[in-house]
Structure formats: structure tokens, C-alpha cells
Simulated assay, not measured.
Amino acid sequence: MDAAIDRIMQTYDLLANRTAAASEEARAKVTNYLNTLIEAGEKDPHRLTVCGLTYLRQLDGSVDPVKAGYTGL
């Protein structure tokens, strides 16, 4: 799990500049989230990485289509 968290945080930090405190908060949140996934039976480190990145991007709103400029037209 530590390898997946490290990969998540390396990739997530490349997406935008964040303070050290914001990165540590994101690491704590994604760690809790991955623990939940592992308890539910997920063991694939690649899938955990993708799920963790998706989770963090949803938390910060970067996957919101409205914010991205998508109008549906």
C-alpha cells in the first residue's frame, strides 16, 4: 500500500503546486480511503493508485465538468 500512496502523491503533486501542509492532508485522506478499499478486498496496487488519484481529484474539484468549461452543448 505504501508504494501505491507514494505513486499517488508523486502524480498528484505534479498536477498543481500545493503547500506541504496541503500535501500532508491529502496523503492522510488518501491513506484512509485506500485502507477502506483494501478492507473491502481490493489488492491490485495499480487499481489502488488509479482509485486514489480519482478520489483526490474529486475532493479538490478538478474533475468537475462545469469547472472544466463543459456546457453539454
Rank of each mutant, 00 (worst) to 15 (best):
M1Q: 06
M1R: 09
M1A: 12
D6E: 15
D6C: 00
R7M: 08
I8R: 03
I8L: 03
M9F: 09
Q10Y: 04
Q10V: 11
T11F: 06
Y12S: 05
D13G: 14
L14P: 00
L15T: 11
A16T: 10
A16E: 14
N17K: 14
N17H: 12
N17F: 07
T19W: 04
T19D: 13
T19K: 11
A21V: 13
A22G: 06
A22T: 11
S23V: 14
S23H: 06
E25F: 02
A26E: 02
A26N: 09
A28E: 14
A28V: 05
A28L: 10
K29T: 06
V30Q: 04
Y33M: 07
Y33T: 01
L34S: 05
L34M: 15
L34T: 05
N35E: 13
N35G: 13
N35T: 10
T36C: 00
T36W: 01
L37D: 02
I38H: 09
E39W: 01
A40Y: 03
A40L: 11
A40I: 01
E42C: 02
K43R: 15
D44M: 07
D44H: 05
D44S: 12
P45Q: 05
H46I: 09
R47F: 04
T49S: 07
C51N: 12
G52L: 03
L53A: 04
L53D: 02
L53T: 06
Y55G: 02
L56I: 08
R57K: 15
Q58C: 04
Q58N: 09
L59E: 14
D60Y: 08
D60M: 09
D60A: 07
D60H: 06
S62W: 03
S62D: 12
V63T: 15
V63F: 07
V63N: 10
D64N: 15
D64A: 10
D64R: 04
P65Q: 10
V66G: 00
A68F: 03
G72S: 09
G72I: 08
